[in-house]
Nucleic acid binder design. Structure first.
Length: 432
RNA sequence: UCCGGGUUGGGGUAGUGGUAUCCUUCAGCCUUGUGGUGGCUGAGACGUGGGUUCAAUUCCCGCACCCGGACCCA
């Protein structure tokens, strides 16, 4: 026996079926909005990540030298690949470009609940629109994905914020503030105690009074955005943008799931406008499930023409946890529509019946192990077969087969030439 | 990288310084003609390396893996 590599998982049919459902649910939502599926490589040049994030991240990468002497890495995220794809065909693509992709990623990091070294994400991005409708559409996709999974506003909440409001407010103080660090401090606000939080703001250049005042401003409700706007031109523009996005989500029918929360910041540096984070409200502690936002400078950073972009990427492991806590994760049991049981030399007929049932689109199993009647019946039970078609020598001697419903145990003889006949889903009741 | 808890057949467990209990599961048979209810037979475990000991699954140390958390989350 070999062990699995730490942080990598096997999925057996029962769980895989549920995961497939979740995957299909997410993708079908995106596709209904016209997002087109793309595919990207599992390996990329290591420098694609080190250039963007510094040498330290090699520690978090599965990277190695290939046989051609190239330094390559298993992709830890989609964004650089998708940015490259976009830049490569930038002139040829009709904007806005809307892409979706579900695939595994790999990061060499500590395994924790909902966090593995191989993990699956569905990435949703729009390139080439700075219009608030694009931000709103991405939010709408996120909400629809969650509600299509069966989640309700009881189970999750999406907190919406705006990077330019945060940075604009910070710059409106009479101080030389390290905006980037200050935003990181805001991102950690909920994780540290208040003194520590204020200390970290102080270290970015604000006085303690200013830090208090800043934090006060972050508590603003939607009605108070006007007051914020008075602080500077930049803040006014940003609040205007945020209002427009929220107004559009109202039209898209998803506003109820969104909460304005300026204390939501997102840790990543590359976000530029609207940012949002989905929280799990099923537990005592609300946990972050995934986030996203606008990143208008990233494409240019990858050598393309300046292109606005907005997107998000839910991880499937955390979504699964959320669904399970909310009680909407599907039951992980397999079922089979028909088991065609053969006794004696009846394979030709049994195979014909199985083929006919499969053509109707049913899941049909038949004996491939030359087992006894009892063993086949036991197997049919084991795979949760709903209906068993007994094709035995005794039945065929009368030109019949026996149809048996496994839940009730009721069974009936049916002329072999009438089965499956014109029925879409023939059962005991159709012949009783 | 750090902290805490854990590891006994496929799953769940009992137990012990002298190699292990029970339930379940799986396979075959009773039963070429009935599974979810019976009977019989069989398969299958002390994570790993080292130490102490006459003897280690049991005690000690390291490691691996699992669960949870910190850091991090591009």
């Amino acid at each position: 026996m070999y062990d699995r590599v730490k942080g990598f998982r096997d999925f057996y049919p029962e769980e895989m079926q549920a995961r497939r459902w979740a995957m299909d649910t997410l993708e079908s939502v995106a596709k209904r909005y016209g997002f087109r599926e793309i595919g990207t490589p599992a390996l990329e040049p290591t420098e694609m990540y080190t250039d963007k994030s510094g040498e330290e991240i090699v520690e978090e990468l599965y990277s190695f030298e290939d046989k051609g002497g190239r330094s390559v890495a298993l992709t830890p995220e989609l964004t650089p690949s998708v940015a490259r794809m976009f830049v490569e065909k930038q002139q040829a693509l009709s904007k806005p470009v809307k892409w979706v992709s579900t695939r595994p990623f790999w990061r060499y990091e500590q395994v924790q609940q909902g966090r593995f070294r191989e993990f699956y994400q569905t990435n949703v991005d729009i390139f080439g629109s700075s219009d608030p409708a694009a931000d709103a559409e991405v939010l709408a996709v996120a909400v629809d994905m969650l509600t299509d999974l069966g989640l309700t506003s009881e189970d999750f909440e999406i907190r919406v914020s705006h990077r330019d409001i945060l940075s604009g407010l910070l710059e409106s103080f009479d101080a030389d503030v390290d905006t980037r660090e200050a935003i990181r401090a805001v991102d950690k606000r909920a994780k540290v105690d208040r003194d520590e939080y204020l200390d970290s703001l102080y270290e970015t250049g604000l006085s303690y009074d200013q830090a208090e005042a800043f934090d006060e401003l972050l508590q603003s409700s939607e009605d108070e955005l006007d007051t914020l706007a008075e602080r500077s031109e930049a803040v006014a523009e940003a609040t205007e943008n945020l209002r427009a996005v929220l107004a559009a989500t109202e039209d898209f029918g998803v506003r109820d799931h969104l909460t304005l929360s300026l204390t939501t910041a997102r840790g990543l540096d590359y976000y530029t406008g609207v940012v949002f984070e989905c929280f799990d409200s099923t537990g005592e502690v609300s946990r972050s499930v995934f986030g996203g936002g606008r990143y208008d400078d990233l494409i240019e950073g990858f050598g393309g023409q300046s292109t606005p972009a907005v997107g998000f990427a839910p991880g499937h492991a955390t979504l699964q946890l959320l669904c399970q806590r909310a009680g909407v994760w599907p039951e992980e049991t397999l079922s089979t529509d028909y088991y065609v049981l053969q006794v004696g030399d009846t394979r030709a007929t049994a195979a014909r019946i199985a083929r006919d049932l499969r053509e109707l689109g049913h899941v049909v199993e038949a004996d491939v192990a030359d087992r006894s009647f009892g063993a086949q019946m036991g197997y049919a039970d084991g795979i949760n077969a709903e209906t068993v078609v007994i094709v035995g020598e005794q039945d065929l001697a009368n030109d019949e087969v026996t149809l048996k419903e496994m839940d009730e145990g009721e069974q009936i003889s049916v002329p072999v030439d009438d089965f499956p006949g014109d029925h879409d889903r023939p059962t005991f009741d159709d012949f009783a």
